[in-house]
Design a protein around this nucleic acid. Structure first.
Length: 272
DNA sequence: AGTTGGACCCGGACGC
DNA sequence: TGCGTCCGGGTCCAAC
């Protein structure tokens, strides 16, 4: 479930904690989470130093001093914790990285999620299909409008397409459409120029707001982290079926669109 | 090309 | 309290 704001929040919190840290211990409790035999994974990581943490869409890449990357995707339910001890028993975490200063990074809830050790080249290869970051300065309103006009699908489907933009998922696509007063099932290429501009601005506005209040992850990263999860009660439409629209009071509608949950206000959100 | 449906996975919610 | 069942959700892939 974590989307761009959650992963960016993780990245910015983890960067000062992890940069320059040397991995002194590795525990893997779930073999499927990683991409090589546990022994090989552990011995390759032990002694390595984390240089920096990079985010691409919903992916995190931990850059190691041997040219390899640890590639993390949390998928649904994945979460991270950092500190001297984890918030649960060690055995509940799929992977634990221990550092020289006594702190550890705990990887929890990885069911479909994964932590792969790959080369820099492989990382580039795996990220090359991703669309631009929503905050990429080259993604001007004009460039965005051009990309959008070439899409034949529905608006929500387009927003969650990682090749169109990297990092938007089910929750924020609905929140963005609400903010832009656009129906999520509208044809993406049918929007008039005023709508395209509202959408462009809403993407940045919603993602920035969510990031600033700590995203919607439930677990704090560290014991003294009070910021994480601040967006939980700020969703205006997502998971608010039948609750009144915060703008007009109309009950929020819930439908599925190509198999995914879709929440919107039938009064505020129009087709173009 | 876009849409649909199934597979993947298992913690947590729910029912009895 | 305990045990069984089912759901969810991002991504990939095959079939329309």
């Amino acid at each position: 479930m974590p989307e761009l704001p959650e992963m960016e929040h993780y990245r910015s919190q983890l960067s000062p904690l992890l940069c320059g840290q040397r991995i002194t211990g590795v525990t893997v409790n779930r073999a499927k989470t990683i991409n090589e035999p546990i022994e090989a994974f552990e011995s390759a990581l032990r002694g390595r130093t984390i240089l920096f943490v990079e985010r691409k869409g919903k992916h995190l890449l931990f850059h190691l001093d041997d040219g390899h990357r640890l590639h993390l995707h949390l998928m649904l339910g994945g979460w991270l914790a950092y500190g001297e001890q984890g918030p649960k028993k060690d055995s509940h975490f799929q992977v634990i990285l221990r550092f020289g200063d006594g702190n550890s990074l705990f990887f929890g809830g990885l069911r479909l999620g994964y932590l792969h050790r790959i080369t820099a080249k492989a990382a580039l290869e795996e990220m090359k299909e991703l669309g631009p970051d929503p905050f990429d300065s080259r993604l001007t309103l004009e460039a965005f409008g051009k990309r959008l006009s070439g899409k034949k699908g529905k608006l929500k489907t387009t927003l969650t397409d990682q090749r169109f933009l990297a990092g938007i998922g089910n929750c924020y696509s609905d929140e963005i459409c609400f903010d832009a007063k656009l129906h999520p099932a509208a044809a993406a290429s049918s929007l008039d120029s005023a709508s395209v501009e509202r959408l462009y601005n809403s993407i940045r506005k919603v993602l920035v707001e969510a990031k600033e209040v700590g995203g919607y992850m439930e677990h704090p990263l560290t014991p003294d982290d009070t910021l994480t999860g601040g967006y939980n009660d700020q969703c205006r439409v997502y998971d608010r079926k039948d609750e009144p629209c915060l703008v007009c009071g109309t009950p929020i509608k819930f439908e599925t669109l190509t198999g995914r949950k879709m929440f919107y206000c039938p009064n505020c959100q129009k087709d173009s």
